[in-house]
Every structure is written in structure tokens, then in C-alpha cells.
């Protein structure tokens, strides 16, 4: 049996102020599967994503495995390399003076030799279609370019799973199509938080609906997203 990309059992997370953001959430993602996470604002999607790189830790004991490795202080480094996290707002992710340095930030933290880092940067920027934009400042890029540059920053870490927070939100139709094509072409395991039903149906083989920190549906996107009663019940219509 091949190891699953992600296996979460009974994940509960309470923010320090008492908000219960995730409530006994269990889900599994197979390797090379593309899964859409759908849910109204405040459903707990971003909170879930922050757990994937160990930025937040579950409040109660729960099993949390990434590619078979249990998340703990010791494995944190390894897991951060395996999971590439793309934040919703690319301005949060691109914090260096130039795109090149942003993309190099991860590989340098992995203590790769500089020649290797350069190679990674070039490959990743080429993969997202921004081969000549390394020397630019993020401030000069369009939103669509920024989002792709943000994806490049995690591609450079050779991660096995991409976790993206609303990759197509606020984009114009062309930018949205470019991101969708990019995700399709990248393949691998992908966890995509989105409100974009068309994206979910076109790219994903499975959709998971969250509501108030719980999983309320899990299945074929074409079925779930056309079920008006289900969507309405969870503030998605």
C-alpha cells in the first residue's frame, strides 16, 4: 500500500480567544490526488491549511500524518519541506526585495549549496511562466503574476504536496485561467481551498465541504456542487 499524502484524524483547534475553528475534523488525501476544500468564510479552511506546515498545532491530541510522517517538533523541518504552502495574499508571501530572492528563500533555508539554489530558482520561475522576472520587485508584478510567483516560491522547495489558499480569488478571467492551467500542469498532490466551483469541477477529483470547522460532505465535485440543498444548508449558495 502506498502511503497517503495526508491523514488527519480528529483535528480540533481552538484559537486562544476561544473560537473553535476546527472541530474533530478528519480527512485523508491520497498521493497525486487533487482535492478542493470548499466552505463559507470562517468555515476554518485557512486554519486547516496553517496546520499543514505546523504553524498552528492541534489543541487536542489527534493524529496528523503527512506522507506517513507524524507531525511533531522533530519532523517539522521535514514536513515544511514536503508541504508547499501558498498563502491567499501573495504580498504576504513575497517579502524579499526581488522575486529571485523570494524564490531562493526556501532552498537557502534548506541549506542547499548556492549553485543548486540558483538552479532551483530558474526552474521554478520557468515552471510558473515568469522566467525573466527574477530581478523584479514583487511590487511591479500584476496580481496574477504575484500569485504565480508565490507558487514558484514553494515549487523551489521540491515539495510533494501543494496547499493553496484561494489561488484564483480576485483575479481577472485571464489570470484565473493561467493559474488553473498551471495547477493542472504541475500535477502532484494538491489541496486547493477555493470558492471557485468551476475550478473545483474542472481540476479536482474530489471536493470536501467544511462548515463551522467540521467536514459536512466529501465526494465527487460534480455531484456535491450541483446539490443546491446541500450548498444552501452550508451558506454556499
Amino acid at each position: 500500500m502506498s502511503t497517503r499524502a495526508l491523514e488527519i484524524t480528529d483535528l480540533t483547534y481552538q484559537y486562544p480567544n476561544g473560537t473553535l475553528a476546527l472541530d474533530k475534523l478528519s480527512l485523508a488525501v491520497e498521493a497525486n490526488e487533487r482535492v478542493a476544500i470548499i466552505g463559507a468564510n470562517g468555515a476554518g479552511k485557512s486554519t486547516l491549511l496553517l496546520h499543514l506546515t505546523g504553524v498552528l498545532r492541534a489543541s487536542s491530541s489527534s493524529a496528523f500524518k503527512v506522507f506517513g510522517t507524524e507531525l511533531s517538533k522533530k519532523t517539522l523541518r521535514e514536513i515544511r519541506q514536503r508541504v508547499g504552502m501558498v498563502f491567499q495574499n501573495p504580498d504576504d508571501q513575497l517579502f524579499c526585495p526581488s522575486v529571485h530572492e523570494d524564490v531562493a528563500f526556501g532552498p537557502r533555508n534548506l541549506k542547499l549549496p548556492e549553485s543548486e539554489v540558483l538552479k532551483k530558482v530558474e526552474e521554478s520561475l520557468a515552471a510558473v511562466g515568469l522566467p525573466d522576472h527574477g530581478s523584479r520587485s514583487a511590487f511591479q508584478l500584476s496580481l496574477g503574476q504575484k500569485k504565480r510567483a508565490a507558487i514558484a516560491t514553494v515549487l523551489a522547495m521540491d515539495c510533494q504536496m501543494l496547499a493553496l489558499d484561494e489561488p484564483t480569488s480576485a483575479l481577472d478571467p485571464r489570470g484565473r485561467r493561467e493559474i488553473m492551467e498551471l495547477l493542472e500542469q504541475l500535477g502532484g498532490t494538491q489541496l486547493i481551498i477555493t470558492h471557485d466551483f468551476a475550478l473545483a469541477q474542472r481540476l479536482c477529483s474530489r471536493a470536501i465541504i467544511l462548515h463551522n470547522g467540521r467536514k459536512v460532505a466529501d465526494g465527487d465535485p460534480a455531484n456535491l456542487l450541483n446539490d443546491e440543498a446541500l450548498l444552501d444548508a452550508h451558506d454556499l449558495l
Binding site: R80, F87, D92, G106, R108, L110, V117, V154
Partner: peptide
Amino acid sequence: YLAMCSRGYDGTQSLWQ
């Protein structure tokens, strides 16, 4: 800061070569 952590920042490295 979270974005930096997700890419392995631990407070020691610089932003450039």
C-alpha cells in the same frame, strides 16, 4: 512571519546570498 516559517525560516538566515 507565517509565510516565512512555512518555508523553513528559523531566525538565523539572511534574505540574500
